[in-house]
Design a protein around this nucleic acid. Structure first.
Lengths: 194, 194
DNA sequence: CAAGGAAACTTGACAGCGTCAAGATGGCAT
DNA sequence: ATGCCATCTTGACGCTGTCAAGTTTCCTTG
């Protein structure tokens, strides 16, 4: 739609392909994400993407990179919206976590699915880190001095990631905010046992 | 290898295709699970599976059915191995949960991945229920009378499913049993707050 | 300013995939 | 014995990712 008249040299083909991929992901699920379809959506030939990504896996990696950034933004927004206490901020990012998963099913599956987990390119894209940093910061107030922060971080992450995954997989039934808050109540008992 | 000389009529083609699918899953990951490869492994033509399953999705459903049964067995075994107290049994099935996920990466992804989550065939195979029943039974001692058991069940399920998923996705780093036990320690604070 | 080379993109081909249509074959009930 | 039906085969179609080779454009270098 906003197509320049560059006869050759698309100019911003890489970004256009990523945007096309995200659109396909949103509209048709993971199976709709196809190199050829991305190319068609960007108005180039089917083999053009090969010059910008290392095959389909490379495109998915680039899309995941953008996805992780949006994911982090979603958590930051939710953190800022709720109770500013440490406990409130922790629950806030969890609500943002779930909200992102619900609003971006296919992207969430891409970010945490088999593609990214494979011993593939040596690991997870760097952007995955920025999400963990948010989590880590919100967990910090509950880490007793001198102890390993990872224990609490993984507790919180496991709980929210498990809930989000199971919810998306249809294992928890219809959306039930009350139930989610009950699960989140377990976070009241995280950290220094008072 | 144990191929009968049935000239026609394989006889147990359905089971053979499921077994072939599981083998492909174990050896080559989700992408290796292919109708044509299953057929070849079972010694039949590429279109034979169509008479036993509703396409690839149907075969995956049948494989998941078997997978869920093995999954439950793995949890039951782990439950019987540890401390027989209610808390010990609860942690036992969680250890079985993680053990299954680690030993059957691709199958685990099939059981909880996008395939099964789609609004697809109307939902999850019935066999998924048998796993939840184990969880539900182990959670029962911690449900205060008159309250909804789902709250605790989903707390526990989310925690262990999240840990297993993140572990498989390579987000928790190398296998660290001590860390896992620290996460499982959160289960000590589940249920009636003492 | 001109030449050359690198980068971007196209075209064409290949094997593998899921799926459908039609034909062949064997077992089973009538 | 006959006829039917489920089972399986063969062949084809369109789609996929990927590679090879050719074409076009831009930029650098002399």
């Amino acid at each position: 739609m906003t197509e320049e008249k560059k006869p050759h040299h698309h100019g911003a083909l890489r970004e256009a392909l990523i945007a096309a991929g995200i659109r396909l992901l949103e509209q048709g699920g993971p199976d709709a994400l196809t190199l050829r379809r991305c190319a068609a959506l960007a108005g180039v030939s089917h083999a053009a993407p090969a010059h910008h990504f290392d095959g389909l896996a490379g495109l998915k990696l680039a899309i995941a990179d953008e996805g992780f950034r949006r994911f982090r933004d979603c958590m930051l927004t939710a953190e800022a919206q709720g109770d500013p206490s440490p406990r409130g901020r922790l629950k806030g990012i969890c609500r943002g976590y779930l909200a992102f998963a619900r609003a971006n099913r296919a992207m969430f599956h891409l970010l945490f699915g088999y593609e990214m987990s494979a011993p593939h390119h040596g690991g997870v894209p760097d952007a995955a880190r920025v999400g963990y940093d948010v989590l880590s910061r919100c967990c910090a107030p509950f880490v007793s001095p001198g102890s390993d922060p990872r224990a609490i971080e993984i507790q919180v992450w496991s709980l929210i990631h498990g809930y989000a995954s199971l919810s998306l997989a249809g294992r928890i039934g219809p959306d039930d905010p009350a139930l989610f808050e009950q699960v989140l109540a377990l976070l009241d008992r995280v950290g220094n046992a008072s």
